[in-house]
Design a binder for these strands. Structure first.
Lengths: 222, 222, 222, 222
DNA sequence: CATGAATGAGGCTTCATTCAT
DNA sequence: CATGAATGAAGCCTCATTCAT
């Protein structure tokens, strides 16, 4: 890029100097993610991370102010992937569609999958939430987003006369936390394989569906 | 109190050895409980505990093999108080009584109160569950007991034809974890005062009741 | 020696437990003093001090919060010995005695001796005065005491009509700093042996004497 | 400026190599001077210097073997400016002129001004003099030059029968160190503004004048 | 020449644990 | 039993210096 004719012909459009640096940083982040997952935060030392990344401890401190900052970075990176949590891909059209129950089920299933994809890091987040204020804030934001999302849907459902809940926020909170808790237990704690999630997902789906939509739908006996 | 006749008369010449020793031990346990609650496990040093208990660090190691063992001991002590968790005081008579809903509500309320009584220690348990195998086992046992308890009740309800659940274990798990999660959020995370628990408790009660017993109420429609 | 007869009658009123501890502390202080003198502050590590004292690094931090605090302690200890600096043993009687010049000379000589007794530590103090605020304050206090002392004497001399200075404080400052500077050069910088101090001490004496008392003595033209 | 004909015409095609290099070097020296003054030697890192100079750390080591060498270089540069210290601009004509006292006063004043011009660097020199052999040597050389200078003047004064000192070297040493010490105190330590120097300068002038030339002046009783 | 990423020795400090009294 | 001084492994972090580009 700097010497397009004399040197740059062909490949390597990437920055020459910064490239090595970027890779070192990346190696550190990867190593940290793995070690944090394997051993937890406290039991991973900055020296461990540097060693696992195959770089010197000096490089570690060139890129991150300390272990905790790297951890936060990691969270922020993964946050985006997880922000579509629980009921985020549940649209208003789904509410009036004819596969409401299926939609709910898929949303719940998605929550299980989310956890299964990065089990170590997810565990880590929960562990640290109570210790580190910043991590706690991230977690709460994540959950709040989910609750807010679902509450908005419930409000819509109310206005569409699909249900007669009186407190959509409390209901949303209850559902989101229930789904989260069961997903955590199945995936992170018991480490059940995906097929074994089924009954739990169905149970949560039933409970949610009957609780939210059972009220209105039933007078006519369907 | 333990030796009312043999020792309790007079002025306890120089404190029976075993009595003094028991007290030292107790002081250490109390101090540890408080410090663990306040600062968490990792940030409490064994020297801190001894100092807070007003005894020497040497005594600490005379009574406990290490910090972790003391922690486990603490848990076991508190475990008993908490073993009546969630639905443990829900009897079979309640099932056929005419205040089923009120009984459920009281059980859920009890879970909230349980957490509010020792918030620090409860937080601690959750924090350590994923780090320390033994703590994790204790936690799981606690939850399992609750689930088992409720599952037994559900089975009973099925046999009494009060509900038509097909998987009492999964249902019990879902309910217990849902109640736990919401209680944790309200009490430990948001630190809501008791009156503010109400809507959440009602929501959980409704959800549980409608999910479990709502099926039976509808005989005429099916 | 520790338990001479039964237990404490006779000698050794000193604390038994604290004794070992006091010795460790003392060993550390001694070792630090020597190392600081030999290598200076920055080039002495806390590990060096512990090693030189023959104790573990842990003990170092049991007694001192860090290297700097130990240094300050050292200064405060030595401060007392040095507070009788420059003109402190110059009494008002000396002013009207018939060996005024001899008294001045002895005071100046004392300043040289003072520095020769703990050359390393004295050097250290000067080195650190500009780096460390607390050390600087100590140094300034030391000098100020000397100046104040001499200024008081000069004021007395004025009131006795022995001299006609108009600014005793400035004069005192000048004399004290002049004596200090020359003493420092001879003793600490050039490391002259005591006999070689003589001409410098005489020169300072002459200068001081003629400057302060030369004015009044001269009306008669000698 | 150095190659006005050979290079100065035209637009400096791409900056003559040696010129660019000279500038890089100069930037480093300037940055170092400033940082050393501000923070002291130990607290200034080589990376800080390079950063402040706006060049890479690699360049730093291309021009200087290490931090210490750069410091020495700095001293040597500033040495020249300061070599006219204390009595260097005191000529033999002044000795026989009719403003001898005024000349002395101006010389002393010059010493104060010298320090006030580069307070940070001057402090630095004193700080390092005892740590670094080379810096110490530079300092001593500086002082020796002043002493030698003054001693030569005093010898001249003796030969002109203006005074009757018996040891011009010791006298010169005493005067030079006295002036230095008071100047240091006023300017570097107390950071007095220039007007406040006056009484000290007058006191030093008086003391010097009366000590050196008071002897000769007295036959006539003034 | 300039760059700046990488290095790693070495300093600082904590704290679980031991052991002589 | 109680004491608390002593221990030292182990973590954290800095910064002078090198070297490949």
């Amino acid at each position: 890029m700097k010497y397009p004719l004399a040197f740059g012909l062909g490949e390597t459009p990437s920055l020459p100097k910064q490239e090595r640096s970027r890779r070192t940083r990346e190696k550190l982040i990867q190593a940290a993610a793995q070690l944090f997952e394997e051993r937890g935060f406290e039991k991973t030392t900055s020296n461990d991370i540097a060693a696992a990344a195959g770089v010197s401890i000096g490089s570690f401190y060139a890129y991150f102010s300390d272990k905790r900052q790297l951890l936060l970075l990691l969270f922020e990176q993964r946050l985006a992937e997880r922000l579509d949590a629980v009921f985020s891909n549940f649209t208003e059209e789904d509410l009036i569609g004819n596969d409401l129950r299926g939609c709910i089920e898929r949303c719940i299933h998605r929550t299980f999958v989310n956890k299964a994809e990065t089990p170590g890091l997810t565990r880590l987040i929960y562990d640290l939430a109570s210790k580190d204020e910043a991590v706690g804030a991230l977690c709460r934001r994540l959950m709040d987003d989910s609750v807010q999302n679902l509450a908005a849907l419930l409000r819509k459902a109310i206005s569409l006369n699909l249900t007669s809940l009186d407190d959509p926020w409390v209901t949303a909170t209850t559902i989101v936390y229930a789904v989260e808790a069961v997903a955590r237990k199945c995936v992170l704690e018991d480490e059940l394989p995906e097929p074994a999630w089924k009954p739990y997902i169905l149970c949560l789906t039933d409970m949610t569906y009957s609780f939210v939509f059972g009220r209105q739908a039933r007078p006519t006996c369907r």
